[in-house]
């Protein structure tokens, strides 16, 4: 199987988009998972629903909403442009944003499960031994939740690699800028005589996604709280 330079470019772009999406989303996902697992505040159910919305919404709707909010004239888009000098329109950054939003619910779910599985009584024991809240978090809660955090990251990465609908709606299909793996496969399908390219790109997609899922399940099982609990 010979992969062309153009296809390597697609793979590299996809990996870049997914890595950035996961890196930026992970702290946010952890914060949200923490709030949902431990927080007691009004509106928790609403927040839970909002986080999970991209999971159930048609991706094209998510893409259109991103366009409204993060487009150059959208409220968030304008702020990012003026303050951080980051533009999302027709850029790979927009593809990363779309991938991150779509991956967020899965990441939050995985991390939340692992936070809920941490035995609160161990945290109490650490308190009686003189640990402050920050230290309890850093030495007990975080290490015990770490497998779930890693699993969430891998799962989010796999989901980002596969992101299509919201991305193409939000940032279109621009080779070298926003044409990620699934969008490249879609484009190839439109062109007669490119079956071989479709096969190659699809096999790569299968291998990457399968690898990510296997790693994710292994991490959860190794944590020992895998009994009856799965990320997906």
């Amino acid at each position: 199987m010979i992969i062309t330079a153009e296809e390597w470019g697609v793979i590299a772009l996809s990996l870049k988009v997914s890595c950035v999406a996961v890196a930026v989303c992970l702290p946010l996902a952890f914060g949200l998972a923490w709030l949902l697992a431990r927080g007691r505040f009004p509106g928790r159910i609403l927040l839970d629903a909002l986080v999970h919305l991209p999971l159930v919404l048609p991706p094209v709707v998510t893409g259109w909403l991103l366009l409204l909010v993060f487009g150059n004239h959208g409220p968030a888009g304008r702020w990012f442009g003026e303050v951080l000098r980051v533009s999302f329109m027709f850029r790979w950054t927009g593809a990363a944003l779309a991938a991150g939003v779509m991956a967020l619910p899965l990441m939050v779910r995985a991390i939340r499960l692992s936070i809920e599985a941490v035995d609160r009584r161990l945290e109490e024991a650490a308190q009686t031994l003189g640990a402050s809240r920050v230290r309890v978090f850093a030495t007990i809660t975080l290490p015990l939740a770490l497998p779930g955090l890693l699993a969430g990251a891998v799962l989010g990465f796999a989901r980002s690699l596969g992101e299509f609908g919201a991305t193409i709606t939000f940032v279109s299909n621009i080779p070298g800028e926003t044409q990620t793996l699934p969008i490249a496969i879609y484009s190839a399908l439109q062109m007669p005589g490119s079956e071989a390219a479709v096969t190659r790109l699809s096999l790569i997609a299968v291998a990457l996604s399968l690898g990510a899922l296997v790693v994710s399940e292994m991490l959860v099982h190794r944590a020992g709280y895998g009994r009856g609990r799965h990320v997906i």
């Binding site: 009584r121 109490e124 024991a125 308190q127 009686t128 031994l129 003189g130 640990a131 402050s132």
Partner: peptide, 10 residues
């Protein structure tokens, strides 16, 4: 709790 200096054996 962290300042009470209790040695708690659970």
């Amino acid at each position: 709790a962290r300042q009470r200096r209790a040695g708690y054996v659970f």
